[in-house]
Design a protein around this nucleic acid. Structure first.
Lengths: 247, 247
DNA sequence: CGGTATCCCCCGCGATACTG
DNA sequence: CAGTATCGCGGGGGATACCG
């Protein structure tokens, strides 16, 4: 059995479960409050259905998640057990570590669908209009298939759409994928990028002005990033890119 | 590249490094204060040299460890960087989780060499005799190759030996591997097992009486274990085994 | 649409051999 | 002894097809 280490050490035992590809991320998504197979697939765009199925089974066997009968369409919904909740805290710590010490992002890390998915979970609905608000996102540098997405908010409920939702947009946000991702991660300030024009917000002035407050950003965006030397380089190269594309 | 997830998510970035087999355990051993290639190999008996070499290289690239020139024989010594220290805390948390929620141990998890290695790091040298004390361990149920080990303590320095150290033993501890491992993990009380005879300590009465205090046990041994139902079953089957072998 | 079974390729890892 | 290069295999995981 490849996954065993031949050790009674508790770290080994934990690692047997978490060491397999994707497993930690599945726990993360469940801890984020998603419970359906399709939600997991959406949050983890590159996982294969069969792998996800296998991981859910293993996590269930390990006592990390519980499988309950589904209610509407889906066969099951998946919930963290108390053991899973404790694990979720560790996964969060790991995220903080990855934020502080993780490598710089490369193009292949960027994924518009996943970004939209993350953002729609962290909208400041308290200060958004109560009536339906449709925000269109256009990733100018992406191929057509990955260029257009929508986030709908209404009565403090937020929804992400991969297809045109059928009604007119209230705001349109146009940016390169990298710009919005960096703003999301907190590497650059959303407001700065908007005023510099690398992120454009089109629509009624009142909504456009309010938009930067709607987007809360990643939970970790306000956390300090280490290796400030690297970080400065990152921002410099990023800005250089923006400038050159604006020429 | 198999190790990438196509996500900018910080957990993904952390998992790219830690998701590979053995990596977390390498960090653990370094955090425990070992720094040499051979020490890592000893603490992780089933890792292959080539894999260990590859892991050290990756951890170095990731900024988790630092490779310094070695001083006596070895080419390098390996130290955690500040990033690695922070990671070490997470690995420790993971160990706590594994202790609380991890699966029961099976025979293949038990490893005498690793147990001796762990124990020799956690001897209560403050209360041990200052002069050289040699403790022989005999795992009665193991094949000859894995049956005999020694721990030497002298002046608050402790050393583990896989071969007869050349001088007489002061104490001899005879037990089945499972008994001592369970006592080490805190599943059962060392004192109880000694008084029941499943762990025997032979030698001068004064030393034999003191011995249970010398062995501090795993750092986690005093932590509560969850699923007490399972735990009781574990102890029952364990005791059943002892009894039947004592018949 | 929600989830599983099957196939098959590829690469991660262990074994072995090798160098300073 | 400390560490690295090479090779070969097994199984992890992605693609695809399939079922309810």
């Amino acid at each position: 059995m490849k996954s065993k280490y031949g050790q009674y050490c508790p770290v080994s035992l934990a690692t047997e479960i978490l060491g397999e590809r994707w497993t930690i991320l599945v726990v993360l998504v469940l801890a984020d409050g998603f419970h359906r197979f399709s939600e997991l697939e959406r949050a983890l765009p590159r996982i294969s259905a069969s792998t996800l199925s296998a991981r859910l089974k293993k996590l269930e066997d390990a006592g990390v998640i519980e499988r309950r009968p589904g209610e509407s369409g889906e066969k099951f919904v998946y919930f963290l057990t108390p053991a899973g909740d404790e694990l979720g805290q560790i996964v969060f710590d790991l995220g903080l570590w990855g934020h502080r010490w993780g490598r710089d992002l490369v193009t292949d890390d960027l994924d518009p669908e996943h970004l939209i998915w993350s953002m729609h979970m962290r909208m400041n609905t308290e200060i958004m209009p109560a009536q339906r608000t449709t925000i269109a996102f256009e990733f100018a540098d992406q191929p057509v298939k990955k260029r257009y997405f929508w986030i709908l908010a209404e009565n403090k409920k937020v929804q992400a759409c991969l297809k045109h939702p059928g009604f007119d947009e209230d705001l349109r946000v146009i940016a390169r994928l990298r710009s919005l991702t960096y703003a999301w991660r907190g590497f650059v300030s959303l407001r700065d990028e908007i005023s510099k024009g690398s992120i454009r917000v089109l629509g009624p002035a009142k909504l456009a002005r309010a938009f930067p407050d709607w987007l809360l950003g990643s939970m970790l965006a306000n956390q300090e990033r280490m290796y400030p030397g690297r970080e400065r380089d990152l921002q410099r190269s990023f800005r250089g890119e923006i400038n050159s594309s604006a020429d």
